[in-house]
């Protein structure tokens, strides 16, 4: 069965920790870090490998800080 594997890259220095991406993710991939970035925001980070590259998180992120990759695995 072909499986889709995805990954996201979060520009953590530009993330404002708003959490809008979190409920948008079907696989609960994202959570806020306990650490803060240079601006003092708890930034978003991935917490599992379940990403399917659907880009939901990226298109709702108001600050456009998420880049999404996806590959079909044979």
């Amino acid at each position: 069965m072909a499986k889709v594997k995805g990954d996201i890259v979060i520009d953590i220095e530009k993330c404002k920790g708003c959490e809008v991406c979190i409920p948008a993710c079907p696989n609960d991939v994202i959570a806020l870090s306990k650490n803060v970035n240079g601006k003092g925001y708890n930034y978003a980070e991935t917490i599992n490998d379940e990403c399917i590259g659907c880009a939901n998180c990226a298109i709702v992120c108001p600050d456009g800080v998420i880049t999404v990759y996806r590959k079909r695995m044979e």
Binding site: V9, T67, Y69
Partner: peptide, 11 residues
């Protein structure tokens, strides 16, 4: 995975 050919979405 993080290769240009797999890029789905960027700003």
């Amino acid at each position: 995975l993080r290769q240009p050919e797999n890029l789905i979405y960027k700003k």
